[in-house]
C-alpha cells in the first residue's frame, strides 16, 4: 500500500498568508500538494463551521493562516480568529479530533519560506499521526467512529 498522504484544508487570509503561498509558488518553493488552499478575505472570516465541515469531509488537518498580530488589514480579525481557534480546539478534542490536526499560524506576505516550512511540517506531523478518525476513505469503512459520526 502506498504511503498515507494526509489531506489538509488551508484557510488563508487574502492579504498575508495567501500572498505568501503565492510567493512560494512564484519563487518555486515547492510544498506538498496535500494542502487545498481556500482564500478567505481574513482569518477572522473563518467560521468554526467551515473547520468542522472540512473535518467531516475527511480532512486530516486544517490550517488557518493569518497576518501577524497588529498587521490585520481589517484591524484585528486575526485576533478574533485566535480566540475562536482556542475555543474550537477544545470542542474538536471532545469529538476525538486531536489538537495537532488543527493549526493556526501567522504567516506574513513576505514569508514564502515560512509557509513552505509550515505546510511541510504539518504534512509530516499528520503522516505520523495517521488518518483522521473521520477520514473514512483512508481508514476504510471499518472505523467505528466514522460510522457513528458519518
Amino acid at each position: 500500500m502506498s504511503e498515507f498522504e494526509p489531506k489538509i484544508v488551508g484557510f488563508f487570509c487574502n492579504w498575508c498568508t495567501f500572498t505568501a503561498a503565492d510567493l512560494a509558488g512564484t519563487s518555486r518553493l515547492s510544498y506538498p500538494h496535500n494542502i487545498k488552499i481556500i482564500r478567505m478575505m481574513c482569518s477572522g472570516m473563518v467560521d468554526p463551521k467551515y473547520v468542522i465541515k472540512a473535518f467531516l469531509n475527511g480532512a486530516d488537518g486544517v490550517l488557518i493562516g493569518g497576518c501577524w498580530p497588529g498587521d490585520c488589514h481589517y484591524i484585528n480579525g486575526n485576533l478574533k480568529a485566535r480566540r475562536r481557534v482556542a475555543m474550537l480546539t477544545e470542542i474538536l478534542k471532545e469529538y476525538g479530533i486531536d489538537e495537532k490536526r488543527f493549526w493556526l499560524r501567522w504567516i506574513a506576505a513576505s514569508e514564502g519560506t515560512m509557509l513552505r516550512e509550515v505546510v511541510n511540517d504539518m504534512t509530516a506531523k499528520l503522516k505520523e499521526l495517521g488518518p483522521s478518525p473521520l477520514n473514512r476513505e483512508a481508514l476504510g469503512e471499518k472505523s467505528e467512529k466514522a460510522k457513528m459520526i458519518g
Binding site: V9, I38, M40, M41, C42, G44, M45, V46, D47, P48, K49, Y50, K53, A54, N57, H73, Y74, G77, K80, R84
Partner: peptide, 27 residues
C-alpha cells in the same frame, strides 16, 4: 471583513459573495 458573518449565530449577517453555502461547496 466578515467578522459579523462569523459572529452571527443565525446566519442573518452575510457577506455578499462569501456565503456559507459557497464556502461549504468549495470545501
Amino acid at each position: 471583513c466578515g467578522m459579523c458573518a462569523v459572529e452571527c449565530q443565525n446566519n442573518a449577517a452575510e457577506i455578499m459573495g462569501f456565503s456559507d453555502k459557497q464556502i461549504m461547496a468549495v470545501i
